[in-house]
Design a protein around this nucleic acid. Sequence first.
DNA 1: CGGGATCTTGAGGATGCTCAACGCTAGTGG
DNA 2: CCACTAGCGTTGAGCATCCTCAAGATCCCG
Lengths: 245, 245
Amino acid sequence: MAADELRIARKKPDMALGNPCAACSIREMSICAVLDNTELSRLAAIARTQTVSPRQTIIDEGEDAKLLFNITSGAVKLYKLLPDGRRQITGFLFEGDFLGIALNEVYAYSAEAISEVTLCRFPRNRFETLIDEFPKLEKQLLEMASNELVQAQDQMLLLGRKTAREKVVSFLLSLSRRARRRGAPPSPVALPMSRADIADYLGLTTETVSRTFTALKGSGVIRLLPGNMVELPNPESLHDLADSA
Amino acid sequence: MAADELRIARKKPDMALGNPCAACSIREMSICAVLDNTELSRLAAIARTQTVSPRQTIIDEGEDAKLLFNITSGAVKLYKLLPDGRRQITGFLFEGDFLGIALNEVYAYSAEAISEVTLCRFPRNRFETLIDEFPKLEKQLLEMASNELVQAQDQMLLLGRKTAREKVVSFLLSLSRRARRRGAPPSPVALPMSRADIADYLGLTTETVSRTFTALKGSGVIRLLPGNMVELPNPESLHDLADSA
DNA sequence: CGGGATCTTGAGGATGCTCAACGCTAGTGG
DNA sequence: CCACTAGCGTTGAGCATCCTCAAGATCCCG
């Protein structure tokens, strides 16, 4: 019923309440969750929605950070490049995620849509005004930044010290855990990103990622389903593979 | 004696100088820089100083995060462990740095003193009360967390995509830049940490770090001075070695 | 169906790791 | 004052993991 209301409301964004955010399907899992309706309407006043096609760039590393985003649907990859083209993906964003937590003057990374993406766009300066008005917002941002830091440290451990197999298993488990956190089943897990993206996220090559998937499939710990879905028959037993040989 | 003063000051928080922080040598480069004397005395009221010997643990990953710290002197390493003992150092802290920016319930990493360390300790709950009172403090924390995130992403790029040589050069350059930012000469650079620590920070082995230093020395781009100092005759030319083969 | 992109598989090779020995230095005690 | 030891750093040889290059398989969308 709550879901029904949301679905209906989504079809008429500029309806009755006057505030499209009130009906936002991802409101409760986004930064907006901390705001009441009045505050939300203030945020809505500076927001614009936008859709982005796959492979389209959203922000560019080094550019002035004039805009911040809330992903309302789809998948996004964040990455950094070396001069010779080597690429490190620093994270994937999905619906509900915030793009631009680090309120720096310039973007620290580029962002590109993986799938069809819809997002909610805010001018940074006006968003920062709201932050000053709503301490709750700042507190929430700090908490989100803290969580990102923890994730970043886990990723450093993965990149610096884990084997290819541990990297891939850790990756699958993190997607599974994320799904569970969002109320979705922990298996099967969707992989909207390409093997090349996974490789650039894990510090491997596409070939190694592919071989590792094949090997995991062979030992029965995963199953590759059509539509880029991966089944994890026994997530618990995977934990051991994720951080010890 | 500094400790004595603090102990006395603690008993009379509103004494002559007002508070010990007013005379703190790292005040301007720490989180305290945003506070005025009145606010600082409030912070001083919940602070305790502490000294830690080399190889002594300051916090343990997974423990309840009851305390936060400001490093007033010395060097600290932050690290995470895998069950089999593999270690990833996620960062080094020096004087002026804040330990515990991510205000999470449990510590996301362990911290250990590299050299003799002095620090300023705060109970987290009381510190959070001050945050609510002084929005400046929260803003500063968010900014520090943002900067850490940027650094973390750089480190991911390093760990995932750079060669051993690029890693070592990047590391030396980051130490050099840090020194310059603090008003110290960019060369020579001090390496208070062991080769093993550097290796665990860069995702390498001590042998590879050692060999790489030797090779860099051989090609004349660095010089190893006594006292674990490294001279970078031409920091500019090093930039190329840090991110392209 | 066809064609381009993505994914998989294979063979060979390089980077960095493992295991091992040796050197250096500083602290210690005779 | 010097020999001794322990810890750290360096060097060497062989090897494993993962990368590179290449070809074939599969998928997806028109």
